[in-house]
Design a protein around this nucleic acid. Structure first.
Lengths: 152, 152
DNA sequence: GTACGTGCAAATTTTTTGCAGTATT
DNA sequence: AATACTGCAAAAAATTTGCACGTAC
């Protein structure tokens, strides 16, 4: 997204264009790992060493309120954010905390049962899968005989 | 569940039977509102005023590790727990934080696409719907601001 | 120029931990 | 008796807030 287009987007959302917001937005758009606020902070600090963590928190919160980023549920302790606001689902590793995307049909906003309408007004729907990712499964393997171990 | 049966369950999970655990377990089994640790604490204190919040945290954590309770994702800040460990889905109100259950088919562990198997080993799968519950929608109705966002 | 945005530091909130005494098996 | 559990208080981690200055519009 060009700087100009981003300026437009911010203006449309009622946000002034600042370097901090620009950097946070770019970091989120490029990130594929659903970073925490602190992780975003570490990344943008490369280009703007003076940016404060508070600003990153505030920026992400205002982005979230305007639908420019999403908060990923199930990450546990730390808040994790997603720059991809198109509908998709998440795989959360209970071991290392990594979060990955996946897609499947039949579980979107339009596929919810009528009972949901009685509850209120849904804003988003997603499948959340918690488990252990392959990398962590491998790390736990060592209990197995080495004949089966295929490691570095 | 009888006290005896619960004793068995704890023993099977490698947990000693204590009054604190008994009370926390019962509170979770009876709760239908996915309480936070602090809420559970307030409830069990009625019967055991001396129980500490730390113990509730530790107890819920050990229950969770043994699959006796589940942590509900998407609640945001506070950790929320669910005494119902059978597969079901959740509706989370972004306004008041209330969490309700709902059921639907086609989004269980057995319905996941193959891509998930490549990721690792899923432990549970659920649909998470975030939105605004009816009670909060009502509260917001009267506050229909006449002023649209002022565009400069 | 005005209102919003930012950095700093301190405050809040939620959850975890060390330790010594207590209760369960 | 051995070991796990609990309460207390303090610590840690994550996020928010008040305030004065700076910057976009």
């Amino acid at each position: 997204m060009s700087t100009e287009a981003l300026k437009q987007l911010f203006a449309k959302s009622g946000l002034k264009f600042t370097n901090q917001r620009y950097l946070v937005y770019r970091a989120m758009a490029e990130a594929k790992d659903h970073p925490s606020a602190e992780t975003v902070w570490r990344r943008v600090r490369v280009e703007a060493p003076a940016i404060s963590l508070d600003t990153v928190y505030r920026t992400l919160a205002s982005f979230e309120a305007r639908g420019l980023v999403t908060r990923v549920p199930g990450g546990g302790e730390e808040g994790r954010f997603d720059g991809d606001v198109t509908p998709h689902h998440h795989l959360v590793c209970l071991c290392c905390g990594s979060i990955e995307d996946f897609t499947m049909s039949g579980a979107g906003l339009d596929d919810l049962p009528e009972s949901v309408a009685a509850w209120g007004q849904p804003r988003d729907a997603q499948v959340l899968v918690r488990g252990v990712c392959r990398k962590c499964l491998c790390k736990m393997e060592p209990v197995k005989p080495e004949s089966e171990k295929r490691r570095t």
